[in-house]
Design a binder for these strands. Structure first.
Lengths: 141, 141
DNA sequence: CTAGGATCTCGAGTGCACTCGAAGTCAAGG
DNA sequence: CCTTGACTTCGAGTGCACTCGAGATCCTAG
């Protein structure tokens, strides 16, 4: 394989990619089956998957999207846009902005929930310290 | 029913409780079946559930716990503690503090994800504005 | 008295995102 | 050559949290 040594890129088997992304090989194949890769995954002559550094970067983004609650179907939509190539950046950015808004809401909601939990904890602390009434169940007033 | 008018409390049917909590009647019955109520739900002579204001407060807390990702099994544990009555406030507070820590982590993770999404959005904005290179797929460097 | 809607129990079905297993092929070390 | 482990496809199974439906009963208004 006469690839220029300066442009040659490290490649990964599916197991190595799993190591580098923290996903399982099962999950990587399943993601591929769901159309979550922006390009066909190349194969060796005998059918084994070969990944490059780009796949690692892509999966890092994918992990961020997943852990922030983007559904697989939306990621598939985004992957399709990337796969389609230049010219649809407007759609891509719209998708990401919608997700950023969802993220804002999630964060606000979690912060509000945390306030309630903290209030509940201090109520309990008061009871434990001997000052403070018996605590009614449920959300603090 | 000779209840003192000053202590008499408004009661709710399951449908009214559903309206007041945003949960469905199905969900309320299912929660009860999973042991998520800190006291047995009283019934009318003919078997219909009767809830008080305490149930509304309890479900408000429960909603906060759920929307912040506490699993049903943990809420059941907490409900059992409350049901057992005074004396286990230490365990209750431990459970809530564990959840507060989980909440801290979730919030941090979401904020980190949001940063990545925002970076991706500004990369796209640069491309759309005509300055900026073609964008490689995946997480921005 | 009757019709409509709300409630009851119980069990089955749904949606999401993996997760696993079986049966077979392939690659690398000894 | 042989074994061991990584890889292949495909379909089925899992866990969580609801969600729905059937069939029966009950309450209220007309």
């Amino acid at each position: 394989m006469a690839i220029d040594a300066t442009t040659a890129e490290r490649t990964y088997s599916i197991g190595e990619l799993a190591d580098r992304t923290g996903m399982t090989v099962h999950t990587l194949r399943w993601y591929e089956s769901q159309g979550l890769f922006p390009a066909d995954v190349p194969r060796t002559a005998t059918g084994r998957r070969v990944y490059g550094e780009d796949a690692v970067r892509w999966l890092r983004l994918l992990a961020r999207l997943r852990e922030s609650g983007m559904p697989i179907s939306d990621i598939a939509t985004y992957s399709d846009l990337v796969r389609a190539g230049r010219g649809n950046e407007g759609e891509r950015v719209a998708l990401m902005e919608a997700h950023a808004r969802s993220l804002d809401e999630q964060i606000e909601q979690l912060i509000a929930a945390r306030e309630v939990i903290r209030a509940k904890i201090s109520d309990y602390r008061r009871v434990l310290a001997g000052r403070g009434i018996e605590l009614p169940p449920g959300e603090p007033a």
